[in-house]
């Protein structure tokens, strides 16, 4: 009973704060702009593309690139959802625990008999619910033209799964950073730094002349890229589940230690 109560409380707090609405409005407007630009480019070349046997279609040139830059390169286009998530998630998660600590309401939650796991999971699921709604609203853009095109549903489903897992992982990292930080702004900065590091650790390593399997395995982008291309492998799924579980376990441990040490 208590974890849903924490989740409901956190969702309510998210939805009455202007920050969540401002982030949703700005990012959806930006993604809509990106979608329109991609669609315009697709329509301009539609005839040429139709002449190519097995050439890329609406899914490869509009639907998937709306979700991420990874398949198209950044070029002159605005960010896709995956890149925006690196900025949005830290802002959404920064107050989950650091804000409670600053308010003095964290001990109040503990005094209702809630375990650290119930507090962390309740807050995490609330943020995740907001992020999944954000993903669905973004997907609604390419799907709104599904009746007039022939989307590759399998590829789209794999990409959606990949993005949902990436959002879940970034949210877990954000909640963990909020558990460790003394102030929400510190939590946001920490979460952004960890998210960016995980995102492009392989690119940084490649620039430094290091290119090996371990570094590539560590990078979130390499796992997400496979899923965005429609390749679902258990190794990629395991990476997301593992990082999410480790981040949430760290957050729970931090709260337990805080209750013990005061």
């Amino acid at each position: 009973m208590s974890m849903p109560a924490v989740m409901r409380l956190e969702l309510r707090r998210l939805f009455v704060r202007p920050l969540a609405w401002v982030l949703a409005a700005l990012t959806l407007a930006e993604l809509a702009w990106r979608f329109v630009l991609l669609l315009g480019a697709f329509l301009a070349n539609e005839v040429k593309l139709a002449a190519l046997p097995g050439g890329p279609g609406y899914t490869d040139l509009v639907a998937l690139p709306t979700l991420s830059n990874m398949l198209t390169g950044s070029g002159a286009l605005p960010f896709g959802l995956a890149e925006l998530a690196l900025l949005v998630v830290p802002l959404l998660t920064m107050s989950t625990l650091a804000g409670e600590r600053g308010n003095g309401t964290l001990p109040l939650l503990s005094s209702t008999g809630l375990t650290p796991a119930q507090i962390v999971l309740g807050k995490y699921l609330a943020v995740l619910a907001w992020l999944l709604l954000w993903l669905l609203l973004t997907l609604a853009m390419p799907l709104s033209l599904a009746h007039a095109t022939h989307p590759d549903w399998g590829k789209l489903a794999a990409a959606t799964l990949g993005l949902a897992l990436a959002l879940a992982t970034l949210a877990a990292i954000g909640v963990a950073c909020s558990a460790f930080a003394s102030h929400p702004a510190v939590a946001a900065a920490l979460s952004l730094a960890v998210g960016l590091a995980l995102w492009m650790v392989n690119l940084g390593a490649a620039l430094a002349g290091v290119d090996n399997g371990v570094v590539n395995w560590l990078a979130m982008s390499s796992h997400l890229e496979d899923l965005l291309r429609g390749l679902v492998s258990s190794a990629d799924l395991l990476w997301f589940v593992l990082v999410t579980a480790v981040a949430l376990a760290l957050a729970m441990r931090r709260l337990a230690v805080e209750r013990e040490r005061g």
Partner: peptide, 12 residues
């Protein structure tokens, strides 16, 4: 429990 200074969620 009523803690000292009654901590509240400002936005509720």
């Amino acid at each position: 429990w009523l803690p000292e200074r009654a901590p509240l969620w400002q936005e509720l």
